[in-house]
Computed example of a mutant assay.
Amino acid sequence: MKSAVIVFPGSNCDRDVAVALELVTGRKPAMVWHRDTELPDGTDFIALPGGFSYGDYLRSGAMAARSPIMAAVRQAAARGVPVIGICNGFQVLTETGLLPGALMRNAGLSFVCRPVRLKVENSQSLFTAAYDSGEEVVFPVAHHDGNYQADEATLDRLEGEGRVAFRYGEPVNGSARDIAGILNDAGNVLGLMPHPERMVEAAHGRIDGRRLFEGLLETVA
């Protein structure tokens, strides 16, 4: 699998994602700068990492969504290339319109940084194929603006179409219906606030996140 990690000024989890992808695929991903206008030929998978792109000025992800490279990301997603946005990457995906809703300030108005329990809601997607529906996993979170919100009609549609990929198994940030990760209508774009790339080696305490990348690799390959 030929992957690409998009790097924005203020990204701080780009290396974490790159290490996870190399560990699982055996191949270093391309690190693509936000000012670039094209993705490497043959890119099979795109990751938008966590961090604080542009210092989270205006709104988290709002400026990164207008970076030159995002036009190529949108075009790739439209062709069916899998795209994951983790934490700040999720915020960027909502700001670009690739995913509905918005990530608001945490309900407790505090930065949350700890491992949290998640429930796998949909195991039939490209990103969750290595999990069982209803399975509980643990990923770390590290965010101040992770409170997912959308209007009731959008939330009902996400639920009805099986597009809620992960749900919090405990109170975290006030997200509507405890939503932690959602899919686009085609199923090839995932926005996820918790960090699977921080649970890929035994030294991390668990390897729950590694299975996301392994399942994706098997499905794409």
Rank of each mutant, 00 (worst) to 15 (best):
145 D>T: 11
155 L>Q: 06
152 E>P: 00
134 G>K: 11
141 V>I: 09
135 E>A: 15
118 L>W: 02
151 D>W: 11
126 L>I: 13
108 G>W: 04
157 R>A: 15
110 S>Q: 13
150 A>G: 07
170 E>A: 12
135 E>L: 13
136 E>T: 14
143 H>Y: 06
135 E>Q: 15
145 D>Y: 13
133 S>M: 10
149 Q>W: 12
136 E>I: 09
164 V>S: 08
147 N>G: 07
130 A>T: 14
167 R>D: 00
139 F>H: 00
192 L>P: 01
112 V>H: 02
137 V>C: 12
171 P>L: 05
127 F>K: 09
161 E>Q: 12
113 C>L: 01
126 L>D: 08
177 R>F: 00
170 E>H: 06
136 E>H: 14
119 K>C: 05
116 V>R: 08
176 A>M: 09
189 V>A: 11
164 V>M: 12
151 D>M: 05
132 D>T: 14
134 G>T: 11
114 R>S: 07
161 E>C: 05
188 N>H: 14
153 A>M: 06
149 Q>Y: 08
119 K>Q: 13
173 N>M: 05
143 H>Q: 10
155 L>S: 08
119 K>S: 11
184 N>D: 15
192 L>D: 01
115 P>C: 07
189 V>C: 07
175 S>D: 03
162 G>A: 08
119 K>F: 01
166 F>V: 04
158 L>I: 00
190 L>F: 00
112 V>G: 12
145 D>M: 10
165 A>N: 01
163 R>E: 02
112 V>F: 03
183 L>P: 08
178 D>K: 04
108 G>S: 13
174 G>A: 09
166 F>Q: 06
175 S>V: 06
148 Y>T: 11
165 A>T: 06
147 N>C: 15
115 P>Y: 03
172 V>G: 06
113 C>E: 10
132 D>A: 15
160 G>Q: 10
121 E>Q: 13
136 E>F: 10
186 A>E: 15
144 H>T: 15
171 P>M: 09
162 G>Y: 04
114 R>N: 09
173 N>I: 09
120 V>F: 06
150 A>M: 07
133 S>L: 02
144 H>D: 07
151 D>G: 05
107 A>C: 08
142 A>H: 13
145 D>G: 01
125 S>G: 05
169 G>P: 03
159 E>A: 15
174 G>K: 11
192 L>H: 03
123 S>R: 10
115 P>G: 10
183 L>H: 08
144 H>G: 15
144 H>V: 13
139 F>T: 01
183 L>I: 04
129 A>R: 14
181 G>N: 02
152 E>G: 01
164 V>W: 03
111 F>R: 13
160 G>R: 00
192 L>G: 03
127 F>D: 01
118 L>N: 02
160 G>C: 06
116 V>H: 04
187 G>I: 10
175 S>Y: 02
129 A>E: 13
170 E>W: 00
107 A>D: 14
187 G>V: 13
134 G>M: 09
